[in-house]
Design a binder for these strands. Structure first.
Lengths: 205, 205
DNA sequence: CCCTAGCGTTCTATGAACAGAACGTTCCAT
DNA sequence: ATGGAACGTTCTGTTCATAGAACGCTAGGG
């Protein structure tokens, strides 16, 4: 569907139902592609689910903040909402942008490839308590920066104790632990996966 | 869900623009490029010129309709406003001691509010050379994690030397430096702006 | 000196975007 | 059947983006 027509002078000054509708369609496509419910996307974006419901049906005129919250949760560039061309979102990426643990939530906010590695950036919130993580694929390196709260992270036998503003880097391919020491902690997690020839890169600048 | 950005009184706009500010800068650039006054652009877009004035200064959170009206009047694609975080960082700010300068690109990939602060996450790429950054608004804290390459960052008089996987945290409200030591470096930058309850609005009703 | 004309900013009222709760539905488990 | 869990929709009150007017500023002309 054409996203919209450049409105000739004399048309309605307010509200372009075409535009809102096409953006809404696009959001719904992206959401369902990932198998997310409205409730899940609402949680990931921190938007009201009523808001999303009406947005998807073109009954709202979203603000820039709202659009940005949605695109980052869905990990697409902002422009992707505005070119309603039914662009499929590239290869893989079935799992969706966020993962749940009892105590841990991770939302993918950035992902790109370097010459020799794939980089993913997560916003991770950690509730109080300890959580073991088995090693991931070989060669993975994790860097965590604490935004708020207090955590102990790192190799199971030698975790680092971090508070606001502190960072730590450790190998992600051996068992490690995330332990929330405050009631609620927010962190930024950078994961770097060595690029094997099979791991085909993704797009996005 | 992000309620509203902090706009500390009397402070210059940050040179790591938040989303609204960067879009505002972009609009102003495009408008002045064309020799248009606010009044003229208001007429062309059928928006209030007060609206445009505040938009350009990052004091509003425009809706999709508003953005569309502006882009069509200026005949640029909508996406042109939204990638405004790429490119030069801080419009022509510092004639400082930068040797090669300008070689910095920052893309906003995450943004949310904590109870007491606004958090922004950038993917920042740094070319070789040194770049001074003037202090941003009071209380800002920056944390940088190097993904690839090699940089020296921090307070101008005491920068830290970082390579892949290393991180550093420093106050962003005093002069600091970003220096790329490798030909090309990629980093993740976390900026935290204190949210003081009263700085939310410059006017009240 | 006024005056007027253009500029960008600030003010005021209104309507809409928003969060969150309440609702109706469907689909399981018991 | 009955409960409850998940879904998407609708409702309600609050916040904020918007239009347009009023304002202050800087010329330039008579």
């Amino acid at each position: 569907m054409p996203p919209r027509q450049p409105r000739p002078p004399g048309a309605e000054p307010t509200s372009f139902p075409d535009l809102s509708a096409s953006v809404g369609d696009r959001i719904k496509d992206l959401r369902t592609q990932r198998g997310l419910s409205l409730t899940a996307l609402a949680a990931a974006t921190r938007l009201g689910k009523g808001t999303l419901s009406e947005l998807e049906r073109g009954q709202r005129n979203p603000t820039l903040d709202t659009l940005f919250a949605i695109t980052t949760a869905l990990s697409v560039p902002l422009g992707d909402l505005l070119v309603a061309t039914s662009g499929d979102l590239g290869p893989g990426r079935p799992p969706g942008p966020q993962a749940h643990g009892q105590n841990i939530d991770a939302e993918l906010i950035g992902r790109w490839t370097e010459p020799a590695e794939l980089v993913e950036v997560y916003r991770m919130t950690v509730g109080q308590g300890r959580r073991q993580s088995p090693g991931h694929t070989a060669g993975v390196i994790e860097s965590i920066t604490v935004v708020s709260g207090e955590v102990a992270v790192g190799p199971t036998d030698d975790p680092a104790h971090l508070t606001s503003g502190q960072s730590h880097t450790f190998p992600g391919d051996q068992d490690h632990v995330y332990e929330g020491l405050a009631h609620h902690s927010t962190t930024v997690l950078v994961m770097r996966y060595p690029l094997t020839p099979e791991t085909t890169g993704d797009h996005h600048e």
